[in-house]
Design a protein around this nucleic acid. Structure first.
Length: 420
RNA sequence: GGCGCAUUCGUCUAGUGGCCUAGGACACCGCCCUCUCACGGCGGCGGCACGGGUUCGAAUCCCGUAUGCGCCUCCA
Protein backbone atom coordinates (compact mmCIF):
# COMPACT_ATOMS: atom_id res chain seq x y z
CA UNK A 1 0.00 0.00 0.00
CA UNK A 2 1.35 3.37 -0.93
CA UNK A 3 1.82 6.13 1.57
CA UNK A 4 -0.67 8.94 1.95
CA UNK A 5 -0.29 11.70 4.51
CA UNK A 6 -2.03 14.97 5.13
CA UNK A 7 -1.36 18.39 6.57
CA UNK A 8 -4.40 19.78 8.33
CA UNK A 9 -4.09 23.37 9.52
CA UNK A 10 -6.99 25.36 10.86
CA UNK A 11 -7.56 28.63 9.03
CA UNK A 12 -7.10 30.98 11.94
CA UNK A 13 -4.37 33.15 10.44
CA UNK A 14 -0.99 33.02 8.77
CA UNK A 15 0.80 29.72 8.57
CA UNK A 16 2.84 29.46 11.76
CA UNK A 17 6.40 28.22 11.50
CA UNK A 18 5.47 25.23 13.65
CA UNK A 19 2.84 24.37 11.06
CA UNK A 20 5.42 24.74 8.31
CA UNK A 21 7.63 22.28 10.16
CA UNK A 22 4.84 19.72 10.43
CA UNK A 23 3.88 20.25 6.80
CA UNK A 24 7.50 19.85 5.73
CA UNK A 25 8.01 16.56 7.54
CA UNK A 26 4.80 15.19 6.05
CA UNK A 27 5.83 16.38 2.62
CA UNK A 28 9.37 14.99 2.88
CA UNK A 29 8.04 11.66 4.04
CA UNK A 30 5.47 11.48 1.24
CA UNK A 31 7.93 12.49 -1.46
CA UNK A 32 10.61 10.14 -0.18
CA UNK A 33 8.17 7.25 -0.20
CA UNK A 34 6.68 8.21 -3.53
CA UNK A 35 3.34 8.69 -1.83
CA UNK A 36 0.78 11.49 -1.62
CA UNK A 37 0.67 14.65 0.43
CA UNK A 38 -2.83 16.07 0.95
CA UNK A 39 -3.93 19.44 2.21
CA UNK A 40 -6.98 19.61 4.42
CA UNK A 41 -8.36 22.73 6.00
CA UNK A 42 -9.91 22.09 9.36
CA UNK A 43 -12.52 24.78 9.45
CA UNK A 44 -15.09 23.19 11.72
CA UNK A 45 -14.95 26.07 14.14
CA UNK A 46 -16.34 28.84 11.97
CA UNK A 47 -16.15 31.36 14.78
CA UNK A 48 -12.37 31.29 14.72
CA UNK A 49 -11.96 31.21 10.98
CA UNK A 50 -10.18 34.10 9.32
CA UNK A 51 -11.43 34.78 5.81
CA UNK A 52 -8.10 35.16 3.99
CA UNK A 53 -6.29 32.48 5.96
CA UNK A 54 -7.13 29.66 3.58
CA UNK A 55 -5.51 31.49 0.69
CA UNK A 56 -2.57 32.67 2.75
CA UNK A 57 -1.81 29.15 3.91
CA UNK A 58 -1.75 27.91 0.35
CA UNK A 59 0.40 30.85 -0.74
CA UNK A 60 2.94 30.07 1.96
CA UNK A 61 3.02 26.39 1.06
CA UNK A 62 3.52 27.25 -2.60
CA UNK A 63 6.28 29.71 -1.76
CA UNK A 64 8.04 27.00 0.22
CA UNK A 65 7.63 24.56 -2.63
CA UNK A 66 5.54 22.13 -0.59
CA UNK A 67 3.17 21.03 -3.29
CA UNK A 68 0.17 18.95 -2.39
CA UNK A 69 -1.68 16.26 -4.30
CA UNK A 70 -5.31 16.49 -5.33
CA UNK A 71 -7.77 19.17 -4.36
CA UNK A 72 -7.72 20.95 -1.05
CA UNK A 73 -10.46 19.55 1.14
CA UNK A 74 -12.45 21.34 3.79
CA UNK A 75 -13.64 19.75 6.96
CA UNK A 76 -16.87 21.69 6.82
CA UNK A 77 -17.82 20.01 3.54
CA UNK A 78 -17.81 16.63 5.23
CA UNK A 79 -20.03 17.44 8.16
CA UNK A 80 -22.91 15.48 6.71
CA UNK A 81 -20.77 12.41 6.37
CA UNK A 82 -19.69 12.77 9.98
CA UNK A 83 -23.29 12.97 11.14
CA UNK A 84 -24.12 9.79 9.26
CA UNK A 85 -21.27 7.96 10.90
CA UNK A 86 -22.45 9.22 14.29
CA UNK A 87 -25.97 8.00 13.58
CA UNK A 88 -24.60 4.60 12.72
CA UNK A 89 -22.73 4.41 16.01
CA UNK A 90 -25.94 5.46 17.73
CA UNK A 91 -27.88 2.70 16.01
CA UNK A 92 -25.22 0.17 16.93
CA UNK A 93 -25.36 1.24 20.55
CA UNK A 94 -21.76 2.41 20.50
CA UNK A 95 -22.82 5.98 21.12
CA UNK A 96 -25.65 7.65 22.95
CA UNK A 97 -27.44 10.97 23.12
CA UNK A 98 -26.79 13.39 25.92
CA UNK A 99 -28.36 16.85 26.10
CA UNK A 100 -28.78 16.83 22.34
CA UNK A 101 -25.17 15.91 21.68
CA UNK A 102 -23.94 12.49 20.64
CA UNK A 103 -21.32 10.88 22.82
CA UNK A 104 -19.31 7.74 22.21
CA UNK A 105 -18.99 5.06 24.85
CA UNK A 106 -15.40 4.69 25.94
CA UNK A 107 -14.00 1.72 27.85
CA UNK A 108 -13.03 2.50 31.46
CA UNK A 109 -10.39 -0.08 31.99
CA UNK A 110 -7.36 -1.40 30.18
CA UNK A 111 -5.15 0.68 27.98
CA UNK A 112 -5.20 2.01 24.47
CA UNK A 113 -1.78 1.75 22.92
CA UNK A 114 -0.03 2.30 19.66
CA UNK A 115 3.48 2.08 18.31
CA UNK A 116 4.34 5.67 17.67
CA UNK A 117 6.45 6.14 14.55
CA UNK A 118 8.72 8.48 16.47
CA UNK A 119 8.39 7.61 20.16
CA UNK A 120 7.89 3.91 20.19
CA UNK A 121 5.11 2.35 22.19
CA UNK A 122 2.75 4.67 24.03
CA UNK A 123 0.24 3.33 26.51
CA UNK A 124 -2.71 5.41 27.51
CA UNK A 125 -4.92 4.33 30.39
CA UNK A 126 -8.55 4.00 29.33
CA UNK A 127 -9.86 5.31 32.60
CA UNK A 128 -8.65 8.70 31.41
CA UNK A 129 -10.85 8.49 28.34
CA UNK A 130 -14.13 10.33 28.71
CA UNK A 131 -17.23 9.57 26.70
CA UNK A 132 -16.40 12.33 24.35
CA UNK A 133 -18.81 14.35 22.27
CA UNK A 134 -18.87 13.35 18.62
CA UNK A 135 -21.52 15.73 17.39
CA UNK A 136 -22.51 18.89 19.21
CA UNK A 137 -26.09 19.74 20.09
CA UNK A 138 -26.13 22.11 17.11
CA UNK A 139 -25.18 19.31 14.75
CA UNK A 140 -21.54 20.20 14.13
CA UNK A 141 -19.05 17.37 14.58
CA UNK A 142 -16.18 17.99 17.00
CA UNK A 143 -12.55 17.99 15.92
CA UNK A 144 -11.77 14.67 17.57
CA UNK A 145 -14.55 13.04 15.58
CA UNK A 146 -14.21 14.81 12.25
CA UNK A 147 -10.46 14.31 12.08
CA UNK A 148 -10.40 10.50 12.23
CA UNK A 149 -13.49 10.24 10.05
CA UNK A 150 -11.72 12.28 7.40
CA UNK A 151 -8.51 10.34 7.79
CA UNK A 152 -10.55 7.31 6.98
CA UNK A 153 -12.37 8.90 4.04
CA UNK A 154 -9.05 10.00 2.58
CA UNK A 155 -7.44 6.67 3.34
CA UNK A 156 -4.61 8.33 5.20
CA UNK A 157 -1.89 5.80 6.01
CA UNK A 158 0.33 7.84 8.31
CA UNK A 159 -0.70 10.64 10.64
CA UNK A 160 2.30 12.85 11.40
CA UNK A 161 1.40 15.74 13.64
CA UNK A 162 2.52 17.80 16.60
CA UNK A 163 3.00 16.10 19.95
CA UNK A 164 0.26 18.25 21.43
CA UNK A 165 -1.99 15.68 19.79
CA UNK A 166 -0.64 12.71 21.72
CA UNK A 167 -3.56 12.66 24.10
CA UNK A 168 -6.01 12.95 21.22
CA UNK A 169 -4.64 9.87 19.53
CA UNK A 170 -6.12 7.26 21.88
CA UNK A 171 -9.51 8.95 21.49
CA UNK A 172 -9.26 8.86 17.74
CA UNK A 173 -8.10 5.28 17.75
CA UNK A 174 -11.17 4.29 19.77
CA UNK A 175 -13.42 6.16 17.38
CA UNK A 176 -11.88 4.49 14.36
CA UNK A 177 -12.23 1.10 16.01
CA UNK A 178 -15.88 1.76 16.79
CA UNK A 179 -16.38 2.66 13.13
CA UNK A 180 -14.71 -0.57 12.12
CA UNK A 181 -12.09 1.37 10.20
CA UNK A 182 -8.46 0.43 9.70
CA UNK A 183 -5.98 2.44 11.79
CA UNK A 184 -3.36 4.67 10.25
CA UNK A 185 0.10 4.70 11.80
CA UNK A 186 0.68 7.64 14.12
CA UNK A 187 3.81 9.66 14.68
CA UNK A 188 4.14 12.65 16.95
CA UNK A 189 6.63 15.36 16.14
CA UNK A 190 8.21 17.49 18.85
CA UNK A 191 7.25 21.13 19.07
CA UNK A 192 9.44 24.06 18.11
CA UNK A 193 10.11 26.49 20.91
CA UNK A 194 11.34 30.06 21.26
CA UNK A 195 14.73 30.98 22.74
CA UNK A 196 13.34 30.94 26.26
CA UNK A 197 12.09 27.40 25.84
CA UNK A 198 8.51 28.57 25.67
CA UNK A 199 6.17 28.16 22.78
CA UNK A 200 7.37 30.17 19.79
CA UNK A 201 5.44 33.43 19.75
CA UNK A 202 5.54 36.96 18.42
CA UNK A 203 7.96 38.24 20.99
CA UNK A 204 10.62 35.85 19.67
CA UNK A 205 10.57 37.47 16.25
CA UNK A 206 9.14 36.20 12.99
CA UNK A 207 6.73 33.31 13.48
CA UNK A 208 4.89 32.92 10.19
CA UNK A 209 6.13 31.87 6.78
CA UNK A 210 4.94 35.25 5.52
CA UNK A 211 7.17 37.14 7.92
CA UNK A 212 10.27 35.18 6.98
CA UNK A 213 9.48 35.88 3.37
CA UNK A 214 9.08 39.59 4.06
CA UNK A 215 12.41 39.67 5.87
CA UNK A 216 14.16 38.33 2.84
CA UNK A 217 14.72 34.69 3.67
CA UNK A 218 14.93 32.19 0.84
CA UNK A 219 12.42 29.36 0.92
CA UNK A 220 15.11 26.76 0.24
CA UNK A 221 17.10 28.02 3.24
CA UNK A 222 14.08 27.94 5.50
CA UNK A 223 13.25 24.43 4.32
CA UNK A 224 16.81 23.21 4.90
CA UNK A 225 16.90 24.79 8.34
CA UNK A 226 13.53 23.45 9.42
CA UNK A 227 14.37 19.97 8.18
CA UNK A 228 17.26 19.91 10.64
CA UNK A 229 15.00 20.67 13.57
CA UNK A 230 14.23 17.19 14.79
CA UNK A 231 15.86 15.34 11.93
CA UNK A 232 19.41 14.79 10.78
CA UNK A 233 21.09 12.89 8.01
CA UNK A 234 24.37 12.09 9.70
CA UNK A 235 26.91 13.65 12.03
CA UNK A 236 28.16 16.38 9.72
CA UNK A 237 25.89 17.28 6.85
CA UNK A 238 23.98 20.51 7.23
CA UNK A 239 23.51 22.08 3.82
CA UNK A 240 21.19 19.97 1.70
CA UNK A 241 19.17 20.79 -1.38
CA UNK A 242 15.50 20.00 -1.59
CA UNK A 243 16.28 16.96 -3.68
CA UNK A 244 18.85 15.66 -1.23
CA UNK A 245 16.43 16.19 1.62
CA UNK A 246 13.75 14.17 -0.13
CA UNK A 247 16.18 11.44 -0.99
CA UNK A 248 17.56 11.17 2.53
CA UNK A 249 14.57 11.78 4.74
CA UNK A 250 13.47 8.83 6.83
CA UNK A 251 11.28 8.68 9.91
CA UNK A 252 13.72 6.58 11.88
CA UNK A 253 16.04 9.57 12.05
CA UNK A 254 13.43 11.91 13.45
CA UNK A 255 14.00 12.82 17.08
CA UNK A 256 11.43 13.10 19.83
CA UNK A 257 12.66 16.03 21.87
CA UNK A 258 11.58 19.62 21.30
CA UNK A 259 13.91 22.03 19.49
CA UNK A 260 14.54 25.69 20.06
CA UNK A 261 14.35 27.85 16.98
CA UNK A 262 17.80 29.39 16.46
CA UNK A 263 17.30 32.55 14.42
CA UNK A 264 21.04 33.15 14.20
CA UNK A 265 21.65 29.82 12.58
CA UNK A 266 18.84 30.38 10.09
CA UNK A 267 20.41 33.72 9.20
CA UNK A 268 23.77 32.09 8.64
CA UNK A 269 22.22 29.39 6.49
CA UNK A 270 20.29 31.94 4.47
CA UNK A 271 23.57 33.70 3.79
CA UNK A 272 25.07 30.44 2.58
CA UNK A 273 22.20 30.00 0.12
CA UNK A 274 22.34 33.61 -0.99
CA UNK A 275 26.07 33.47 -1.69
CA UNK A 276 25.71 30.22 -3.60
CA UNK A 277 23.28 31.67 -6.13
CA UNK A 278 24.56 32.39 -9.63
CA UNK A 279 24.95 36.21 -9.92
CA UNK A 280 22.16 36.44 -12.48
CA UNK A 281 19.69 34.65 -10.30
CA UNK A 282 20.78 36.56 -7.27
CA UNK A 283 19.94 39.78 -9.07
CA UNK A 284 16.59 38.37 -10.20
CA UNK A 285 15.66 37.43 -6.68
CA UNK A 286 16.77 40.74 -5.28
CA UNK A 287 14.76 42.69 -7.81
CA UNK A 288 11.69 40.55 -7.21
CA UNK A 289 12.04 40.88 -3.47
CA UNK A 290 12.36 44.67 -3.52
CA UNK A 291 9.32 44.90 -5.80
CA UNK A 292 7.36 42.73 -3.43
CA UNK A 293 8.33 44.96 -0.55
CA UNK A 294 7.18 48.05 -2.34
CA UNK A 295 10.46 49.70 -3.33
CA UNK A 296 10.38 51.48 -6.67
CA UNK A 297 14.13 51.56 -7.18
CA UNK A 298 15.57 51.35 -10.66
CA UNK A 299 15.90 47.68 -11.61
CA UNK A 300 19.05 48.22 -13.62
CA UNK A 301 20.79 49.92 -10.74
CA UNK A 302 19.66 47.18 -8.35
CA UNK A 303 21.15 44.63 -10.72
CA UNK A 304 24.44 46.49 -10.82
CA UNK A 305 24.49 46.74 -7.05
CA UNK A 306 23.68 43.05 -6.58
CA UNK A 307 27.23 41.72 -7.04
CA UNK A 308 28.50 44.32 -4.58
CA UNK A 309 26.33 42.97 -1.79
CA UNK A 310 26.04 39.27 -2.51
CA UNK A 311 29.00 38.34 -0.33
CA UNK A 312 28.00 40.71 2.41
CA UNK A 313 24.38 40.38 3.43
CA UNK A 314 22.64 37.31 4.77
CA UNK A 315 19.04 38.26 4.09
CA UNK A 316 17.61 40.22 1.18
CA UNK A 317 15.97 42.43 3.76
CA UNK A 318 19.33 43.95 4.63
CA UNK A 319 19.76 45.42 1.18
CA UNK A 320 17.90 48.71 1.68
CA UNK A 321 19.86 49.59 4.80
CA UNK A 322 23.15 48.41 3.35
CA UNK A 323 22.98 49.80 -0.17
CA UNK A 324 20.12 52.29 0.00
CA UNK A 325 22.55 55.19 -0.37
CA UNK A 326 22.89 54.27 -4.04
CA UNK A 327 19.29 55.17 -4.67
CA UNK A 328 19.09 58.57 -3.03
CA UNK A 329 20.35 61.85 -4.46
CA UNK A 330 22.59 64.21 -2.60
CA UNK A 331 20.52 66.25 -0.22
CA UNK A 332 22.70 69.31 -0.71
CA UNK A 333 24.40 69.28 2.65
CA UNK A 334 27.69 67.62 1.77
CA UNK A 335 30.43 66.72 4.14
CA UNK A 336 33.43 68.69 2.96
CA UNK A 337 36.42 66.67 1.90
CA UNK A 338 38.06 69.08 -0.55
CA UNK A 339 41.29 67.12 -0.91
CA UNK A 340 39.46 63.97 -1.78
CA UNK A 341 37.24 65.82 -4.19
CA UNK A 342 40.28 67.17 -5.93
CA UNK A 343 41.87 63.75 -6.20
CA UNK A 344 38.68 62.30 -7.64
CA UNK A 345 37.89 65.06 -10.08
CA UNK A 346 40.70 64.04 -12.38
CA UNK A 347 39.68 60.38 -12.51
CA UNK A 348 38.56 59.36 -15.96
CA UNK A 349 37.02 56.99 -16.71
CA UNK A 350 35.30 56.92 -13.34
CA UNK A 351 35.78 53.19 -12.85
CA UNK A 352 36.36 51.27 -9.65
CA UNK A 353 39.86 50.47 -10.75
CA UNK A 354 40.81 54.04 -11.54
CA UNK A 355 39.10 55.29 -8.41
CA UNK A 356 41.04 52.87 -6.28
CA UNK A 357 44.32 53.90 -7.86
CA UNK A 358 43.55 57.58 -7.31
CA UNK A 359 42.47 57.12 -3.73
CA UNK A 360 45.43 54.99 -2.81
CA UNK A 361 47.72 57.58 -4.27
CA UNK A 362 45.86 60.19 -2.28
CA UNK A 363 46.28 58.22 0.94
CA UNK A 364 49.95 57.85 0.34
CA UNK A 365 50.42 61.53 -0.31
CA UNK A 366 48.62 62.34 2.89
CA UNK A 367 50.67 59.81 4.79
CA UNK A 368 47.53 57.96 5.82
CA UNK A 369 46.92 54.27 6.16
CA UNK A 370 44.35 53.06 3.65
CA UNK A 371 41.66 52.60 6.26
CA UNK A 372 42.32 56.01 7.79
CA UNK A 373 41.90 57.64 4.44
CA UNK A 374 38.91 55.65 3.21
CA UNK A 375 36.68 55.56 6.22
CA UNK A 376 35.84 59.30 6.20
CA UNK A 377 35.04 59.03 2.51
CA UNK A 378 32.82 56.06 3.13
CA UNK A 379 30.98 57.91 5.84
CA UNK A 380 30.54 61.02 3.73
CA UNK A 381 29.33 59.18 0.66
CA UNK A 382 27.31 56.30 2.09
CA UNK A 383 26.28 57.87 5.35
CA UNK A 384 27.54 54.81 7.21
CA UNK A 385 30.71 53.23 8.46
CA UNK A 386 29.57 49.95 6.95
CA UNK A 387 29.02 49.63 3.22
CA UNK A 388 29.73 47.64 0.08
CA UNK A 389 33.22 48.05 -1.38
CA UNK A 390 34.00 51.76 -1.54
CA UNK A 391 35.50 51.98 -5.04
CA UNK A 392 32.73 49.95 -6.66
CA UNK A 393 30.17 52.00 -4.80
CA UNK A 394 31.62 55.27 -6.08
CA UNK A 395 31.67 53.96 -9.62
CA UNK A 396 27.98 53.12 -9.41
CA UNK A 397 27.20 56.47 -7.93
CA UNK A 398 29.02 58.26 -10.73
CA UNK A 399 31.46 61.12 -10.52
CA UNK A 400 28.90 63.88 -10.31
CA UNK A 401 26.93 62.42 -7.45
CA UNK A 402 30.07 61.37 -5.62
CA UNK A 403 31.52 64.85 -5.80
CA UNK A 404 28.21 66.34 -4.75
CA UNK A 405 28.40 64.28 -1.59
CA UNK A 406 31.88 65.35 -0.64
CA UNK A 407 31.55 68.96 -1.58
CA UNK A 408 33.52 68.97 -4.79
CA UNK A 409 32.74 70.04 -8.34
CA UNK A 410 31.74 73.52 -7.27
CA UNK A 411 28.40 72.18 -6.07
CA UNK A 412 27.21 72.08 -2.51
CA UNK A 413 29.23 74.75 -0.77
CA UNK A 414 31.56 73.48 1.87
CA UNK A 415 29.54 74.02 4.99
CA UNK A 416 32.33 73.67 7.44
CA UNK A 417 30.92 70.48 8.83
CA UNK A 418 33.47 67.76 8.92
CA UNK A 419 33.20 64.03 8.90
CA UNK A 420 31.93 63.75 12.42
C1' G B 1 -3.67 17.93 40.61
C1' G B 2 -4.07 13.56 37.00
C1' C B 3 -2.25 11.41 32.61
C1' G B 4 1.28 11.59 28.73
C1' C B 5 5.89 13.01 26.43
C1' A B 6 10.83 14.81 26.67
C1' U B 7 16.05 15.56 28.90
C1' U B 8 24.13 15.10 25.04
C1' C B 9 28.20 21.90 24.53
C1' G B 10 24.37 28.60 25.07
C1' U B 11 21.50 26.48 20.39
C1' C B 12 20.62 22.45 16.45
C1' U B 13 22.46 17.71 16.58
C1' A B 14 25.89 12.72 15.88
C1' G B 15 25.93 8.69 19.15
C1' U B 16 21.43 2.34 19.45
C1' G B 17 26.95 -1.35 25.42
C1' G B 18 33.54 -1.21 24.10
C1' C B 19 35.46 2.79 17.76
C1' C B 20 33.80 8.45 22.97
C1' U B 21 40.17 11.38 26.61
C1' A B 22 31.78 12.34 23.30
C1' G B 23 32.10 14.17 16.68
C1' G B 24 29.96 18.26 13.44
C1' A B 25 27.35 23.00 12.71
C1' C B 26 25.54 27.93 14.57
C1' A B 27 26.74 31.43 18.30
C1' C B 28 30.84 33.33 21.23
C1' C B 29 36.36 34.51 21.92
C1' G B 30 41.43 35.04 19.68
C1' C B 31 44.69 35.26 15.36
C1' C B 32 45.28 35.73 9.91
C1' C B 33 43.27 38.05 5.36
C1' U B 34 41.44 43.12 4.57
C1' C B 35 39.15 50.08 2.39
C1' U B 36 34.41 49.16 6.48
C1' C B 37 31.26 45.08 6.72
C1' A B 38 31.03 40.27 5.20
C1' C B 39 33.39 35.95 3.19
C1' G B 40 37.39 32.60 3.87
C1' G B 41 41.46 30.18 6.85
C1' C B 42 43.49 28.68 11.62
C1' G B 43 42.84 28.03 16.86
C1' G B 44 39.96 28.22 21.46
C1' C B 45 35.87 27.98 25.08
C1' G B 46 31.96 24.63 26.06
C1' G B 47 27.98 19.15 27.15
C1' C B 48 26.09 13.25 28.42
C1' A B 49 20.14 16.88 34.39
C1' C B 50 20.78 14.13 39.24
C1' G B 51 20.79 9.45 42.13
C1' G B 52 20.60 4.34 42.22
C1' G B 53 21.03 -0.24 39.71
C1' U B 54 22.28 -4.16 35.46
C1' U B 55 27.19 -5.30 33.16
C1' C B 56 34.01 -7.07 32.77
C1' G B 57 32.45 -2.28 30.57
C1' A B 58 26.91 2.77 30.01
C1' A B 59 25.91 8.99 26.92
C1' U B 60 23.80 4.33 25.24
C1' C B 61 19.63 -0.69 29.17
C1' C B 62 16.26 -0.50 33.89
C1' C B 63 14.19 2.22 38.23
C1' G B 64 13.56 6.69 40.93
C1' U B 65 14.06 12.10 41.47
C1' A B 66 14.23 16.86 39.27
C1' U B 67 13.09 20.08 35.44
C1' G B 68 10.46 21.45 30.95
C1' C B 69 6.41 20.89 27.71
C1' G B 70 1.50 19.08 26.21
C1' C B 71 -3.41 17.52 27.10
C1' C B 72 -7.35 17.02 30.52
C1' U B 73 -13.49 21.99 26.05
C1' C B 74 -20.24 20.41 22.99
C1' C B 75 -11.51 24.51 20.71
C1' A B 76 -8.57 22.75 16.72
Amino acid sequence: MSVRVRFAPSPTGFLHIGGVHTALFNWLFARHEGGEFRLRIENTDTSREVAEATEQIQDSLRWLGLDWDGEVTFQLDRMERCREEAQRLLAEGKAYEDDGAIRIRMPDEGVTAWDDLIRGRIDYPNEKLEDLVLVRADGRPTYNFASPVEDRLDEITHVLRGDDHISNTPKQIRILEALGAPLPAYGHLANILGEDGKKLSKRHGATSAEEFRAQGYLPEALVNFLALLGWSYDDKTTIMSRGELVERFTLDRVGASPAIFDFKKLEWMNGVYLRALPPEEYADRLVAYLREQGYDWDDQLVRKAAPLVQEKISTLGEFPKFAGFLFARSSGQPVALPDVAEALEAVDPFSAEAIEAALRRFAEQQGLKPREAFQPIRLAVTGSTVSPGLFESLELLGKEETLARIGGSGRGEASGSSAR
